[in-house]
């Protein structure tokens, strides 16, 4: 069974048809999903600005990272849940959309970048926590995060057009 056939099967499940054909559920889910962007990516932005020394210059990195992390993770869990249902409602269209695939790849890279920062870069931050300037690896992680999440938002919205 090919992946496309699996997508076709998924598209015929009652939940998929129910969301797709409802005048309420698809718009409602997509509206929830758009606002989740703010709680996931929007909060990461504060951290990225600090890493690049473009904003929150008087605030130690640890105060931003440790305190916003649980909220950003919560935002991403919410995004995954609403995103799964949106995907479920039109899997074949997503499967055939180049924009959707770029979004998925950029999202995986952005999560990878976040995990690397969490496990490898942040633990070494004791000597540069209060900045103002961050070492190159920290700036790079912040810039990569900004670029990758921008691509995710761009291609996420573009999936409706491609």
């Amino acid at each position: 069974m090919s992946v496309l056939m699996m997508m076709e099967w998924l598209q015929e499940t009652s939940i998929s048809i129910g969301i797709r054909e409802s005048i309420f559920w698809f718009p409602f889910l997509i509206a929830l999903h758009v606002m989740g962007t703010v709680t996931g990516i929007g909060l990461i932005l504060a951290l990225d600005l600090r890493l690049l020394n473009w904003g929150m210059k008087n605030t130690p990195l640890s105060a931003i990272f440790l305190q916003l992390r649980p909220w950003a993770i919560g935002g991403f869990v919410y995004q995954l849940i609403t995103g799964v249902f949106l995907f479920w409602s039109e899997p074949v269209r997503c499967f055939e959309s180049w924009s959707f695939w770029i979004k998925m790849i950029a999202m995986c890279l952005a999560f990878g970048n976040a995990i690397l920062f969490d496990k490898m870069i942040y633990p070494t931050s004791a000597s540069w926590d209060t900045g103002p300037n961050m070492p190159f690896r920290a700036k790079f992680a912040g810039a990569a995060s900004l670029v990758l999440w921008t691509i995710v938002i761009f291609t996420g919205r573009w999936t409706a057009y491609s």
Binding site: I41, G42, I44, A46, L68, W71, T150, F154
Partner: peptide
């Protein structure tokens, strides 16, 4: 959408602080 994320993301950061649930 990108500028909205920037606007509301930064406002949400401040709102979480106002609520006393982050960056306390």
């Amino acid at each position: 959408l990108l500028s909205m994320t920037m606007l509301l993301g930064t406002i949400l950061t401040v709102n979480l602080r106002l609520l006393g649930v982050a960056m306390t």
